[in-house]
Amino acid sequence: MLEDYFRQYGLLFLFAVIAVTVPVGMLALSYAASFVRIRPTRQTPVKRTAYEGGMPPFSPKPSRFNFRYYYYALLFVVFDVETVFLYPWAVRYGLLSKQFGIFALAAVMLFLAVVTLAYAYAWRKKALEWT
């Protein structure tokens, strides 16, 4: 049983190794190619500009952002913490609903309603508008 536990994460570890190897390997291959002159390195000002979705960049270096954007990060964090509490409930929902019936659902719905109310308030106060 204990062995099975670690075996399943062994597979995950293998997956992570492959996921890291592929992009790093591509970059390394590209770098190696520059030595055998398959990839020429001729720098031009255009090549050196930062890529901003095809548009010419409008500021030379990372600039300050309005602090209002911090609220988006906060909204995201609250959503994230909400998920943390939904996840163990969802894992056991089958058994819980058998034992407690509608209560298992209602308890979580009340939790969601309280948090969603705050989101509705933020929406109403136009905190989510990109201006």
Binding site: L74, V78, L112, A113, V114, V115, Y119, Y121, A122
Partner: peptide
């Protein structure tokens, strides 16, 4: 849930 709502508000 109330705590999370308080953080948002």
């Amino acid at each position: 849930g109330l705590l999370l709502a308080a953080a948002l508000i």
